[in-house]
């Protein structure tokens, strides 16, 4: 235990434990960006770009610079992030100023103070490239050593992002199902009220509820909730 801590190992351990904090997807991806800044020496700012439904989005960033520079890539339709996404390969520019590969992106990015950049594709096994981890430096070039750390970092980062997305999706499904269940609960309760007040069966009660919903132009679920809240306002007798 007396050995000096392996910083990269510590950062990777933190990456692996992302789900346990029970946070939103955006917060979890934000952690990935911040961990990248700490783990990769030349990195001053980092962001996670996701490609979903044909749309590129900076889903999380360590600071505002990332969103601005990413936006230059999206609007000029060129740059290391886009190329990394399209090829599934890492793209490094040790000196953006001297780089001729992306002329339209270069000028605005240099204008933002970016001197060097490194884009790492987030690839999950055979699930394809889900996004890109973009690293920017305003002080010194990303060198071979940075690239090497980046390569070691990107697989666990890809897994962490994939896990975070799967978990967020599962939580969204749970939320929808709970809402649906609540709607069903409230419709059942409204049916029971009508059954007791109007001495009818459940099918008749539901018909009555549907008629009322149509006449008053209120959604069935909203009407049911209103009846549970205040039966006399909506039902006579």
């Amino acid at each position: 235990m007396d050995e000096p801590p392996d910083t990269l190992e510590d950062e990777l351990t933190e990456l692996a434990g992302l789900l346990l904090a029970n946070e939103t997807l955006e917060t979890m991806l934000g952690h990935v960006a911040h961990i990248a800044v700490r783990a990769i020496p030349a990195c001053d700012a980092a962001g996670v770009t996701l490609f979903e439904r044909d749309q590129l989005t900076t889903a999380a960033a360590s600071g505002p610079l990332v969103r601005r520079v990413d936006e230059h890539q999206y609007s000029t339709d060129e740059g290391p992030c886009l190329e990394s996404l399209r090829t599934g390969e890492l793209r490094r520019s040790p000196s953006l100023q001297a780089d001729t590969r992306w002329p339209k992106f270069r000028a605005p990015a240099v204008g933002e103070g970016v001197v060097s950049c490194l884009s790492l594709p987030l690839v999950i096994g055979n699930h394809g490239t889900a996004g890109v981890l973009n690293l920017y430096s305003q002080n010194r070039p990303f060198e071979d050593a940075d690239e090497e750390i980046g390569r070691r970092f990107v697989t666990p980062a890809s897994v962490a992002v994939a896990n975070a997305r799967a978990y967020a999706k599962a939580r969204a499904v749970i939320e929808q199902l709970e809402e649906a269940l609540q709607s069903r609960d409230v419709i059942g309760q409204a049916k029971g009220i009508i059954e007791a007040r109007e001495h009818c069966g459940p099918d008749e009660a539901f018909e009555r509820l549907r008629d009322l919903s149509q006449h008053r132009n209120i959604k069935l679920r909203d009407l049911a909730a209103a009846i549970v809240d205040s039966p006399d306002t909506y039902l006579s007798g």
């Binding site: 609960d185 059942g188 409204a190 049916k191 029971g192 009220i193 009508i194």
Partner: peptide, 27 residues
């Protein structure tokens, strides 16, 4: 995933007798 399966099963079950009884008791 367990919770999702459970919620789906509850939604799929057409029986809303407990909710109806709550409503009836209210009335």
């Amino acid at each position: 995933q367990v919770l999702i399966t459970d919620l789906r099963a509850r939604i799929a079950s057409a029986d809303d007798i407990v909710d109806r009884a709550h409503g009836a008791l209210m009335a």
